Amino acid sequence: IAIAIKTGIYDPSITGVSLQEAKDKTIQLVRSVAYDHKINNTRKVWGGDWQAAHWAYFAGYSAWLLWDDFSPKDQTYILQMIVAEADRFLPTVPLYYKDSTGKVIFKGDSKIEEDAWNAELMYLAAVMLPSHPHSNKWLNKAVAYMIAATSLPSDLHNSKIIQGRPVSSWVNGSNMEEPGFVINHGIIHPTYNAIASMINAPIVFSLVGKSTPEAARFNLDKIYYSITTHSFSAPPYNAPGGPMYKPGTADVYYPEGSDWGQGVYDTYANLDIAAFTYGWDNLSKKYKGKYWAKLHTDKVLAQQNRFADRHTYKGDSENSYPGREEAIATRMGSAWMTIWLQKQAPAVYDNQPISK
C-alpha cells in the first residue's frame, strides 16, 4: 500500500477504500510493528531473532516511503527498531551452507535468504541514517552479507575486486552450487533462486539518488543463468529435465519438486523484471528477462482474474505459505518499484571501497 501511495498509482475505485483510509491503515500497521519491538520497552513482543531483520526491513521501508505522515514519536520508535536490528549484526559474520572446505554446515538449508534479508535491513539503515555513527559500519557489513548470500564454491578463489577487496577475501564458504542454483528445504529449489531479498538494493539506494554497491549484484547473473538456461538431466532429476524456465509457458520446472507448491509465479516475475532492468540476464541464452517477465506477469494476472476480489491463490495446492497473499504484494510491489524508479532515478552501481 505504501508503494502504491508513494508512486501515485493507488486507485480507490479498484480497492473500494479511500486514499486517506488506506494511508491511515498503513500508518497504523507500521507504527504498531515498531511499537511492539522490544527495543522500545513497550510490550516487547518481538525483535532480535531469526526473521526479525526481515520484518524490520519491511516496516522500516514502508515507513520511509510515507515518513512525513508519521508523528515524531512514531518516527523515534521506527528508527530505534531499525538501529537495534542493524546493530546486532555488527559483531557477527554471515552464515554459509558449506564451509571453505566444502563441508555442509546446514544440511539441505542454504543461508542465502537469511544473509540476504539481514543485509537488506543493514543497507536500509545506512541509507536512511547516513549521519549515524554506525552508518558505514552497517554498509560494510551489508556488503559482506550480500556477497556471502550468493557465494559459490569457486568464489573462494575468485580474485575479482568487489568494494576494494578480492571476492576470495570476503567469503568463508558458499551458499549456492555451481553454476548458481540453490539447495533449500533439502532440494534444488528454484523459488530460492528468485528470493526477493536479493534484488531490492537498487530500489533503496536509488530512492535517495545514491549509487548501489557492486556487491548488491554479485553473482545475480549466475543465479539468473541457472534458472533460465542451465539444463538438468532426467534422470537423476524429475522428468522432463532441461532448464527451470521453459519457452512458451509460465510454468517452472522443479528438478526435485517444490514443498511450497508449483503455482507461484510472482516471485519469478519480480526476478525477471529486475534481471532485464539491471542487466542480470546477460548470461541467459536466447530468451532474456523481458521475455520471461511477460510470461510470468501474464500468469499472475490470469490467476487473479479467477476471483472477484483479485486475490491470487486458490489454496495450499498452489502456494502453501500461510502469508501467500501478503507475500505476493511485497514482491509485485518490488517489481513495480524497479520499473517506476528506473524512470525517475536509474540505478547506478559503484565498486569503490566503503570507508569504515
Rank of each mutant, 00 (worst) to 15 (best):
E325W: 02
N282W: 15
D155Q: 08
Y321R: 13
L29C: 15
D316P: 10
I354H: 06
S13P: 08
V264L: 09
K356M: 14
G242W: 01
D309W: 10
D99Y: 03
H311K: 10
T150M: 08
V300T: 05
R306G: 08
I223M: 11
I105M: 07
D259G: 15
A234I: 05
V208D: 10
W280R: 00
A119E: 04
A347G: 03
D266W: 13
K23D: 10
W292R: 00
E318R: 02
I112C: 09
P247D: 08
G333E: 03
N41L: 12
L156T: 02
V83A: 12
S100V: 12
Y291N: 02
S168Y: 11
A63G: 07
K44N: 11
E318P: 00
E114W: 13
A125P: 03
H157W: 15
W64S: 00
Y278N: 04
Y253R: 02
Y237V: 00
D115T: 05
Y224C: 07
K6H: 14
I78R: 01
K160Q: 13
H134W: 15
I147Y: 05
I223H: 11
V171L: 07
D99W: 07
D155T: 03
G248Y: 01
Y192V: 04
K356C: 13
W46I: 00
A63P: 04
Y265S: 06
I112V: 09
L19P: 15
K285Q: 15
E256I: 05
N200A: 14
P236H: 03
S320M: 07
A4F: 09
D109F: 13
G289E: 01
I14E: 14
A274F: 09
Q344N: 10
Y225P: 01
M332D: 10
Y253D: 01
I112D: 10
G48E: 05
P240K: 03
Y61I: 09
G209C: 02
S159K: 14
Y291C: 00
N172T: 11
S110Q: 01
V143D: 07
P236A: 05
A194I: 05
K286R: 12
E85F: 03
L129C: 08
Q28T: 13
A125Q: 01
A216S: 10
S32F: 12
T212D: 08
D350R: 04
I223R: 11
K103L: 13
G48P: 01
W280Q: 00
A34Y: 06
V143W: 02
Y192K: 04
H296L: 09
W64K: 04
A216Q: 06
H185W: 14
T267G: 15
